[in-house]
Amino acid sequence: MPRACGVQSSMTEVVNAVSVDRARREFLKTCMGLAAVAGLSGCAPLLAKSRLAKLLVAEPSPDEYRPVLKALLETVLPFGHPQFPLSREAMFARFDALFSLEQEARLAPMRRGLMLFDETSLFPEALGAVRDEERRALQAYPANDPEMVERQLDQKNAQDKKLLDFFLKKQGIGAVRFTEMKPADRKEYLWLWSQSGFGLKRQFYRTAKAVIMVSAYSQPELWKSIGYQGPFPDRG
């Protein structure tokens, strides 16, 4: 094809950079809500004091949050499936290329969000920022009076506690961390987040799934295995 391939590919990069930035921002927003640490103090009695203190004050290092990210990717994508064409390494590299967590200071909340997701025992806790976001949503419509709103928030926390208790009992495990769980338990724990009473936690599930799917299904290797031929030959 007599086309300006060089121009085309650099253009694609520019456009990619713009839209990935958007997806990242959306994910960042949900993590930021989770990680607004002010709401953490005075809760999470299940969590060892030293670990809680660390979550509150310390900036997690790559050694700490990368395993969480890795476990999340391994849960969302079926690397063990015989027809899944991408290796873990290739997929991590692709994800890093699109959503490089390391480099930017402003992605700090995302890193911390992952650490909070890792702590099973925090799931049912009344995290301030999560409740604030939900309160805003409930208050947006004048029909809800403040007392009713607070009651609804408490119900949602109770609902999340029930979800977690049921999960732990069913899987026969204690409140271990996501990264320490067996693959089957990880799947159930991630699913829990889609069932939460709080919008921000469901959004964490949704956006985490979305950014991982985007980085996977924008790759021609995956197109091939699902029988998608992509652009017309004259645009390939």
């Binding site: 456009v15 839209s19 997806a23 985007v214 924008s218």
Partner: peptide, 21 residues
Amino acid sequence: QREWDANALYAGSGARATSDG
């Protein structure tokens, strides 16, 4: 003809949504 590229044509680079996302 690559769906990810086409975000450049959309409001908010394809990420425009209601305020709660």
